[in-house]
Design a binder for these strands. Structure first.
Lengths: 322, 322
DNA sequence: TCTTCCTGTGAATGCGTATTCTTCTTGTTT
DNA sequence: AAACAAGAAGAATACGCATTCACAGGAAGA
């Protein structure tokens, strides 16, 4: 791999001159400029980004931390981030926390080792104390996407709000018993339950964590047997919803006639399921773009501004399953 | 961010000594070792990977190039690669070619700029001439995963073979007319057609590229109307299959009774569709692991060995859609 | 007491860039 | 013609690390 010094030697100029040419510095005579450029082209010169990063203050690397890249929603999110970053001349170091806090922390060390310019992250929990204190010590700007992290720049759909939107909609549609599939600390569940309580339906909502398919079937069928009123299942994401639909089919129940099902994330898949899945859409592309933009600005002037808190509206996508 | 020199200053030793301690070099007295380690811990020292990469021969960065990370199959693949790499102390620079050859090429420049140690790639086409010649000039080892690239280390499921497996199975199940959804240069289609020709069914197979949902519906319904024999659709991937199932439902056709549908990739989703999707599974995790392993070995001794060509068996997953 | 051999430590150096500081050349002004 | 401004290119340096080499001091052997 050819270096500037090599080019300098070949073209009988000094290395700084080569640097000037390659960086478009005007203070260099046209003949030399041509000579150097020709040589660089001929040998297919590529800047050593490591050296540049070591010397200067920018590595042009962005860290991207997601909980599970295999989940279609985060895969799409990662893609949008990658695109936005690339457009601005940045490359992406990807990391998967797999919902494991230890991995998450480990990644922050990687981030520091590579002197990444900034990080856009989906933290596992919105308010993890260790995470937060660790990020504080980091001298790297971190923006949070899809999750709200107090004290950090956050670009997110407000989960409690989205959850309450879902609740309002389902109540409006006549549902009176509700099952939420997901972690009980999930903001969606929190908002969902609160909104239902406001309707005097606080007793009518239950929560289950998804473990295995069989277990979910048992729980679902028990739950359905335990009441008479119109029932709806609110799944923490479309993948859960897919499994719920499957189980209801196994149980011989028709959706939405006997049970309503609501997903979350508006994965592509939902559009083509049977029945087509009602779900909640997040403006991923916008969030990704604006998060990256902000991150780059944040890098300019370190920490003079207040952390930004930017919630995005969730959009209810009503299809056939409710 | 604290450096070795800083630690040296604080502990009253020389910088090389700090380096020795941190690298476990035995030639350093226990007292000094302790002193230095304590100081490093206290200040939460992190190696500057850029400097190390610049001076040494390893950056501990791996490039990962996929065609579309938003596709569940590649998302899962990327995840496996990331896990395998991390276990071996490598981090991942991710890139999305989005089926755009220009992007693909552009990425190879990024790879060179960051002096990545190796690349695991899903090339857009198995035999792209520019790609191949470009990779040759690269002095970075590249392994190809999921696609076979002659002359490069390849870890893949042989698409033509898999296509013929599908053909054999479908013929065996009594299907006599076939529609393949995907690019006609897709190896799956090539093998599929060949196997059918061997059964004297060469005339019975057609190919359509998926553009829009509506267009596919028209084409599908036309195609179905054009013949009487038992028909099956072979979709190039599970996402296509999902859309096909949807369309057939719209057309009021029952699967598998009236039309068979075969997917490809064994995406998680397929397990829970209605009907559950018959598909083809690739041993992604194994491929990813072995590709990364090989890549690391390849990095040891540059190019003394022959390029490895490692096909993996495809596994037919038969569920309800055929 | 004087070599010889370790062993632990520091000094010096290189990796590829960008920047700052100098030097040298050319052209302009009075 | 002399003085000076400006422009072009080279020399030196720093960034953080690893590595090589040389040197000091001590222990062991003669």
């Amino acid at each position: 791999m050819i270096t500037m010094r090599e080019i300098a030697r070949l073209t009988h100029v000094s290395q700084p001159t080569v640097s000037r040419v390659l960086n478009g510095n005007p203070k260099v005579s046209p003949e030399i400029r041509e000579r150097v450029l020709a040589c660089a082209r001929e040998h297919d010169y590529q800047l050593n980004a490591l050296a540049k990063g070591l010397q200067g203050s920018r590595t042009h690397l962005l860290g991207v931390l997601v909980t599970d890249i295999a989940n279609g929603f985060f895969a799409d999110l990662a893609k949008q981030i990658e695109v936005a970053a690339r457009e601005r001349g940045y490359s992406i170091i990807l990391f998967n926390s797999d919902y494991n806090p230890a991995s998450e922390q480990e990644y922050l060390d990687v981030v520091r080792r590579y002197r990444v310019d900034g990080v856009v992250a989906v933290p596992i929990r919105e308010t993890s104390l260790q995470w937060h204190s660790y990020v504080e010590k980091l001298d790297v700007p971190v923006v949070t996407i899809t999750r709200r992290a107090p004290g950090l720049d956050s670009f997110y759909v407000d989960h409690p709000v989205a959850g309450s939107q879902v609740a309002e909609y389902l109540v409006d549609r006549g549902y009176r018993r509700f099952l939420f599939i997901g972690k009980n600390y999930d903001g969606k569940y929190v908002g969902f339950r609160q909104a239902l309580q406001a309707h005097g339906l606080g007793e009518a909502v239950t929560n289950r964590v998804l473990r295995t398919h069989d277990q979910l079937r048992r729980e679902l069928s028990d739950w359905l047997a335990a009441g008479q009123e119109r029932a709806a299942v609110f799944a923490g994401n479309d993948i859960y919803a897919l499994q719920v639909l499957d189980i209801l089919r196994e149980l011989g129940l028709s959706v939405p006639e006997q049970v309503g099902v609501m997903g979350f994330d508006d994965t592509f898949m939902g559009r083509h399921l049977s029945p087509r899945l009602s779900t909640v859409r997040q403006p991923t592309a916008r969030m990704a773009r604006e998060a990256v933009d902000w991150l780059l600005e944040r890098m300019e002037d370190p920490d003079d501004r207040e952390p930004v808190d930017r919630p995005y509206p969730a959009e209810l996508i009503i299809r056939e399953s409710t």
